[in-house]
Nucleic acid binder design. Structure first.
Lengths: 210, 210
DNA sequence: CAAAGCTACTTAACAGTGTTAAGTAGTTTA
DNA sequence: TAAACTACTTAACACTGTTAAGTAGCTTTG
């Protein structure tokens, strides 16, 4: 009996998340209000607070969904033996993920709210999702060093640099700051081409560190 | 007479901006509402709409103030002859600006609102502030190429990469995503040291492109 | 000099936001 | 059968940006 109730409670929790996902992906974060989610699932707005602490809690759940998608994409890369090839593939996949899921990217790497929710939790306030991704990147960087790349460089500084370089590219794209300086590069390329060309510079610079 | 009135109108416009600046810098963007600005200057909220089209208009004005500060800091760099030294100094100054003025940095490079305001304007919807900075960076990159750096690389791709690399660093810091992965780099460093160490990696990689 | 017009501002309201306290059917338990 | 608990709702609070309509007071005009 109790189990059944808990299961039902879990059910509505995921129903809320599904509605939030739908609104979030199609209408964007701004348009995803508690009241709209409630209307979507046919319950009153206050019901949502029985399943999620506050809006940040929902945003954190969405951020976890995003990390689920990203991890799924990263999984095949574990099989890539050559660490530098893996590093390049990691960057490419990261950028592609951001282009395919801009709303998820924002909630995962550009918004304070999910982290605020984490900090509001008494226990387990560690950002395990992010740490896992960075850990994977760091290990790849260290492997690259044993192959002669990034000689005499701090592997952590290299890791953060690599992350920041791709994050910088995709976040400037997502916020439309790249589009706004199109006049500076008079060439007629798609935003995706421009971003990948800039990523190529990172790859070439890293390659020449060997 | 007319001139005096216009001048008075201009006066209140800057009084509003000053109040917005104060709230914005001290309380952050979230806490800067039209109503709070109005209370700060002792006028009714609707008065603000006589001087600014909407909130994005005010945010755009704040963004311009930020670019004013940045340009002031960049000015002395024009005198640096060695282009690679200038490039390094540009990066350092950019990072330092973001650390000193996180709220302004957000409004300048991380928020859609000022750009939305630009696009809502019929004429002059070009992001001249950003383009000026990128133009300066691009020219420095091209000068570096004539000194042997970035051989056979697209100068525009290098420019965007350089910008994205430093933007990535400071934006991950501003959104507190860097702090959240502190556990991955067990060293006890300040956020500023970590960011500058990662920037150093960029410098070294660029240096080895010669 | 009074009437009309204009300027600069305010009041009131609309439509929305996140969030909480209090209340209410319906089921379960004692 | 009565008490207790579950799952949900209604009503409200305190905000947000924004607009339509109204009002003093000064300026210009007939």
């Amino acid at each position: 009996m109790i189990v059944k109730k808990i299961k039902h409670k879990e059910d509505l929790r995921s129903v809320i998340l599904e509605a939030a996902k739908k609104l979030f992906v199609h209408e964007g974060y701004e348009a995803t209000s508690i009241r709209k989610i409630a209307k979507e699932i046919g319950f009153s707005p206050t019901t949502i607070y029985l399943y999620y602490k506050d809006k940040n809690d929902i945003v954190y759940a969405l951020h976890q969904v995003g990390f689920g998608i990203l991890k799924e994409r990263f999984f095949p890369l574990m099989a890539v033996d050559n660490p530098f090839e893996r590093l390049k593939a990691l960057g490419k996949l990261y950028i592609q993920f951001a282009f395919d899921n801009p709303e998820y990217y924002q909630v995962m790497f550009m918004m304070k709210e999910p982290l605020s929710f984490l900090n509001s939790q008494k226990e387990n306030n560690e950002w395990i999702e992010g740490e896992l991704v960075i850990e994977f990147l760091k290990n790849t960087v260290i492997e690259c060093q044993s192959k002669g790349y990034f000689k005499e460089m701090d592997p952590i500084a290299v890791t953060i640099h690599a992350w920041a370089a791709v994050h910088g590219l995709v976040s400037l794209h997502v916020t439309q700051h790249l589009d706004c300086i199109k006049d500076v590069f008079d060439k007629m390329e798609t935003m995706e081409e421009i971003v990948y060309n800039s990523f190529q510079v990172l790859v070439e610079l890293m390659n020449s560190s060997k």
